[in-house]
Design a protein around this nucleic acid. Structure first.
Lengths: 264, 264
DNA sequence: ACCTGAACACCGTTCAAGT
DNA sequence: ACCTGAACACCGTTCAAGT
């Protein structure tokens, strides 16, 4: 186990006096100046993306930041909370995505489409982190992965209700949407990232390994080419369209009933 | 690849000869007689179900079996492979489920329904294990969780093809089915089990904790009762029905084309 | 105020020994 | 043949110290 740190650090942590003054002066390339919760979470995400979830230890993350592990405890209560923070920070990237709006000003379909694609972008950008997003115990039972944030739940429900969905229909749409996104993105990320979930990519390559006897699975063998195609993107679009279609029907059927007309 | 054999084992593997002789005689309550890969995997599942995934260490599992941790290495190459074995063993429980058939003798809808419900039963029976099923890197990219077994992939494809689906439609159905099951079951298990994924239930209860300011989320607050309803079962049935409906359309439209009629 | 050294209890895993 | 003791390198976390 050596330093993970792929981006070698040609600049030493300290002095580097040069421009003088009392300020430690953040080094140009990689800063190791003020430790800071945001910086720690960012480094953790970077580290996981680059080395896999299993490789992340407090000690190695410290080293990655040019600091001893114990220094992290001033900003983060412990490893578990670090991981919670990572999930939160990754999901919060949605907030900075110019393609994703918080309100349904262009209609609920547009809102759902953009939100879904935004989440997909995040999942694909952080394939090693996503299983954590999918899998960490939610704060409340109704904060469902992968949406995991009160702000987005609020925004989702408002968008649907403002568009004419009843409260019941909005909640049920939220459930169906979460489940669709979770399944698709977790599967997609698991296929891309080679690995998924609480796993490692240590060093051994053990390719051969379990060359299970394929003789018993003729159909699988025959369809291997078909099965190996990566249709993730198309599947995603199709399933999303299908979901929107279903919701459209719900909306049409459940239009908030006219006043003075208690039934039909 | 172990024996599927879910039928609990009231009889110890070995002799059980009378009441005496040289045999160490398995203690009545917990057997610690012959260690054995099957017994180890069973104990691991039991342990995870009871104590959470995070609590499972080689040393504690050893203790649970009345043995030192080092003894396990004679039957299992290491912790990671132990977890792979756990996933496999849990999925293999399907094989002993009398409600789930390997062939579509009662039609493909019946087959898909039974398979889905069988998997759901397993997920709910082992909520602490399921995140592992959802999340472990698949052996091949097209062995998609939660189906995770060549035997079931083979059986699935055969069932669909035998029912008249084209090979392409069968593969695409397999993809849609996996994604639906994964999303629903992971979400359901995460809500039930209080926790999910690589998590712990150590001892502290920390209820209060993050009492986030709900003032900013009026819609969430207003709909809290609705959001808190557990509609998992109904959602599951509905989404499954919807999927079957979609597939029915695919089947009807893509009926293997008549000979001598190359288009329409 | 912020970081480190040393220490504690615990891990996975190896290997030479015990029986 | 099967299990254990002792050991190694590594972990998360604490706390008294350093600067």
């Amino acid at each position: 186990m050596t330093e993970p740190d792929p981006t070698a650090d040609p600049d030493s942590p300290e002095g580097r006096g040069g421009a003088a003054a009392t300020i430690p002066a953040a080094p140009p390339g990689a800063g190791r100046a003020g430790l800071d919760r945001r910086r720690i979470l960012g480094a953790a995400i970077e580290f996981i993306d680059g080395n896999g979830l299993n490789a992340l230890t407090m000690r190695r993350l410290g080293a990655h930041l040019g600091v001893e592990a114990m220094a992290l405890y001033r900003y983060v209560p412990g490893r578990e909370q670090l991981l919670d923070g990572v999930v939160e920070a990754v999901i919060d990237e949605l907030y900075g995505d110019p393609d994703v709006h918080l309100s349904a000003s262009h209609g609920w379909q547009d809102y759902l489409q953009r939100l879904a694609h935004g989440l997909r972008r995040i999942a694909l950008a952080h394939p090693e982190v996503f299983p954590l997003v999918a899998t960490r115990p939610p704060a409340a039972p109704w904060v469902r992965p992968p949406l995991r944030s009160l702000r987005w739940v609020e925004s989702f429900l408002d968008a649907m209700i403002d568009s004419g969905f009843t409260e019941e229909a909005a909640v049920s749409a939220y459930r169906a949407y979460s489940s669709f996104l979770l399944g698709h993105l977790l599967l997609e990320v698991s296929q891309k990232g080679v690995k998924i979930g609480p796993e490692d990519h240590p060093d051994g390559v053990h390719d051969s390994a379990e060359a299970t006897d394929l003789g018993d699975y003729p159909t699988v063998v025959r369809l291997e080419a078909l099965l190996s195609l990566d249709e993730s993107a198309a599947e995603f679009e199709e399933a999303l369209e299908n979901l929107l279609g279903r919701l459209e029907v719900v909306l049409r059927e459940s239009r908030t009933p006219r006043r003075g007309d208690p039934r039909a």
